[in-house]
Design a protein around this nucleic acid. Structure first.
Lengths: 158, 158
DNA sequence: GTACACCTTGACGTATACGTAAACGTTAGG
DNA sequence: CCTAACGTTTACGTATACGTCAAGGTGTAC
């Protein structure tokens, strides 16, 4: 009979292995990203267990996407993301009645980073589309060649 | 006064440094790709200098694109490309009067690989577009938030 | 309160993708 | 034929991104 793993405390926080499973990462990677300053858990338990909230998980998922799908290095990713220090400041300070000017500055900063992220991803998509075009052109030539061969083949090698 | 580099022999072949400059690679990378079986030069000089033709350069450019733009590992790239042995066979054998059945098989093989390349690149584009959507959604929320603040800010932190 | 799964912080190991230097051969102009 | 720029192979070095222990603390069910 299998032992139940001590149930994860019905909290809004997840522990590192739960986060890792949900996102398809390893705990080592998550700790490494923290080491690089890419993200820090929203909280720690009394015994200093890392505790992640929904925003952490979203951020980690984005990091994974940038790494796996977009193929960015972790250095590039850290350039692309808001630095974690700023994020912590925002998370902790924004809710307080900071003065309106500073609130605006925080949001505007996030917005400009998000716009940069969008541009960079779109640029990458454009480059990939150019590659697809090249591949499709080659495909067209090969299909023509195949048709020729089936029709009783003429022609030289390309 | 600068010495002229010994002019590259008015041949249809390029030497490794010329190829590297043209594509923005290093000679080390090119040799490394050869070591991994990703490509081999069309010819060697008497003194065993590597000599690349247009098809080699196209292939190398594609490899660079797959690495830089698509972010694939060299292992993935070698899975994606026709293996170099087959390419050499094609280059050398196709022009000869191989029998029609084999010619057809060679072209059909290339075609199916090219189709796979196209699918994989399109998949990657789709994943990137999903990321862009997520980023744009976040951008929309931030813009709304900024408008709120400018209108005299209500609301909680997201 | 004890067991067992889970966590912590080091710290060393490893695969990938090259960089870099050594020792030596090649090519082409003068 | 000599020389400067370029190439060759071999081999060791390095940055990145983790994997994998080790030694010890934590959290919850029983």
């Amino acid at each position: 009979m299998t032992l139940e793993t001590p149930s994860p405390a019905p909290s809004r926080f997840l522990r590192i292995q739960e986060v890792a499973s949900e996102l398809g990462l390893t705990t080592r990677s998550i700790r490494y990203y923290e080491e690089l300053g890419l993200l820090s858990p929203a909280a720690r338990s009394d015994g200093s267990y890392r505790l992640y909230d929904a925003s952490d998980i979203e951020r980690l998922g984005f990091i994974k996407g940038l790494r796996d799908d977009a193929g960015f290095s972790l250095a590039e990713i850290s350039q692309l993301l808001e630095d974690e220090a700023a994020r912590v400041r925002t998370r902790e300070a924004y809710a307080q009645t900071v003065d309106a000017v500073e609130r605006r500055a925080l949001v505007a900063g996030s917005l400009s980073r998000v716009e940069r992220q969008s541009r960079i991803l779109r640029d990458k998509i454009a480059r990939l589309e150019a590659m697809v075009s090249a591949v499709e052109a080659r495909r067209g030539r090969l299909e023509a060649r195949l048709a020729d061969l089936d029709a009783g083949g003429p022609g030289e090698v390309r």
